[in-house]
C-alpha cells in the first residue's frame, strides 16, 4: 500500500467535541444528601437494614441485596483516612506546589467510603487510619455540592 512518507504532506484538522453542557440530576438520594449538607451541615448515609451496610454518598438501593433504601443516618463529620495519595501534578501535567492530598475517608466498618481531599496537614504527616474531620464552607457559601466540604483535616 502506498503511504505518506513526507511529514510535510501529513494533514490533520482540528475539531471540538461539544460535551460541556449537562444538567446532571442528583436524584432522590442526592437531594437528601445535598440538602442536609447545605442546610444542616450534616453528612447523611443510606442504610440497608438487612445487609447492615451504610452507603455514602447515599443511594436508594443496596448493591448487595438490591433492596430499596429509605433509611438515612447522620454519619457525623468525623472519620479516618482509609487510603491517600499525594498528587504532584494537575490535570494539565503542571507541578502542584503544594501538592494535593487526596483520600478515601472511612466513617466506620460497615460504611462505604467517601472520596475527598485532605487539608491543614503536611503530606509526610498523613497515615492510613489518621482521624480526620470535615471542614465545611460557611452556610451562606454552601451550594449543595460535594465541594461544600472544603476538605478533611486531622482532629487535633
Amino acid at each position: 500500500m502506498e503511504k505518506i512518507s513526507k511529514p510535510t504532506e501529513i494533514k490533520h484538522q482540528l475539531g471540538h467535541m461539544e460535551v460541556d453542557h449537562y444538567h446532571y440530576t442528583v436524584g432522590l438520594a442526592g437531594e437528601r444528601f445535598f440538602t442536609a449538607l447545605r442546610e444542616e451541615g450534616k453528612l447523611l448515609g443510606a442504610r440497608c437494614e438487612s445487609c447492615g451496610v451504610t452507603y455514602i454518598p447515599p443511594r436508594i438501593y443496596c448493591e448487595e441485596c438490591f433492596a430499596e433504601l429509605d433509611e438515612y443516618v447522620d454519619l457525623g463529620l468525623e472519620g479516618e483516612v482509609r487510603s491517600f495519595t499525594i498528587a504532584r501534578i494537575d490535570r494539565d501535567g503542571r507541578p502542584l506546589d503544594p501538592p494535593e492530598i487526596r483520600a478515601l475517608i472511612s466513617f466506620g466498618e460497615d460504611t462505604t467510603d467517601l472520596l475527598h481531599l485532605l487539608g491543614e496537614v503536611e503530606p509526610e504527616e498523613v497515615y492510613i487510619g489518621m482521624e480526620v474531620e470535615a471542614v465545611l464552607k460557611p452556610k451562606r457559601e454552601r451550594e449543595g455540592k460535594v465541594t461544600d466540604i472544603r476538605y478533611f483535616r486531622p482532629i487535633k
Binding site: 446532571y24 454518598p57 487526596r102 460535594v146
Partner: peptide, 8 residues
C-alpha cells in the same frame, strides 16, 4: 456529581 467536582 460526587467525584469529578473534586478535580485533579
Amino acid at each position: 456529581i460526587y467525584e469529578a467536582p473534586l478535580g485533579g
